[in-house]
């Protein structure tokens, strides 16, 4: 089943056309990887899926994006959309508050007040993000005291705490060391049982290792979109082949 459908999407920053006629379907409970050189529009497209681009001044979008067949720009209230389509950012960005409050922020935003229920959500989210064992004794301590890799998993837990359906990950491991990176990759594979995951990555091995489907972007266009295995073993487009064999980018 298709979770997200993108049709004829164009995106402009003022006069610059950053995305050109993008058409993509994102199936449910799979990992989709966006790859491509810097500035090719993959992060921009990701941010269009939960309307984070609305915060960018001078950004204009045309076309259609649907979540479960509903237009995300007209038929879904923006905060509800962002609850359903969670996001993990490139740089870990825990709030300057305790680990507990970081995770509780989302549920509290959406009206969960009971302490017992919050406790449950927090334990479950932290367990799902594979960081519970490391932080369970210091929930009241500041989240800023965690290492970079822990902070990123905390941010994943924070995103999970609002029970999203889709998880957008914008180069979630680019600021992390190899061990933290592999933890996050394992986690992503684990999470796709319950969530649809869209991940932007600069790391082609990462895309090859964990994603089910991969889209290759170049200069604002989707050049090729296919099963990851096929895209990496026999790319149809010459440009895709050049990129994945490291001839440019």
């Amino acid at each position: 089943m298709n979770k997200i459908v993108i049709e004829n999407l164009d995106l402009y920053y003022k006069d610059f056309k950053a995305l050109k006629n993008v058409n993509l379907t994102i199936p449910e409970k799979e990992i989709i990887a966006f790859i491509g050189p810097s500035g090719c529009g993959k992060s921009t497209l990701l941010k269009s899926l939960n309307r984070m681009n609305d915060l960018v001044e001078g950004c204009r979008i045309t076309g259609l994006v649907t979540l479960d067949n509903k237009n995300i720009y007209t038929d879904i209230e923006i905060n509800m959309l962002r609850k359903r389509v969670g996001m993990v950012f490139q740089k870990p960005n825990p709030f300057p508050m305790s680990i507990y409050d970081n995770i509780a922020y989302g549920p509290r935003t959406h009206g969960v007040k009971s302490k017992a229920k919050l406790d449950d959500i927090i334990e479950k989210s932290l367990r799902d993000a594979a960081i519970w064992e490391e932080v369970k004794d210091r929930l009241k301590k500041s989240a800023l005291g965690l290492s970079g890799g822990q902070q990123q998993r905390l941010c994943i837990a924070r995103a999970l705490a609002v029970q999203p359906e889709v998880l957008l990950m914008d180069e979630p491991t680019s600021a992390l060391d190899p061990i933290s990176t592999s933890k996050i990759e394992d986690l992503a594979v684990e999470l796709k049982k319950d969530y649809t995951i869209v991940m932007v990555t600069h790391n082609m091995q990462q895309a090859a290792r964990i994603s089910d489907k991969t889209a290759f972007f170049l200069l604002g266009e989707v050049i090729e979109y296919n099963e990851t295995e096929k895209l990496f073993s026999m790319p149809k487009d010459k440009r895709t082949e050049d990129y994945i064999t490291g001839r440019f980018g």
Partner: peptide
């Protein structure tokens, strides 16, 4: 990034400004 993180969780402007 704090603001983005908050908006990304579905919090509105008011909550983002006053809580974060």
């Amino acid at each position: 990034v704090y603001r983005e993180g908050s908006f990304g969780l579905g919090a509105g402007k008011l909550r983002t400004v006053f809580v974060i």
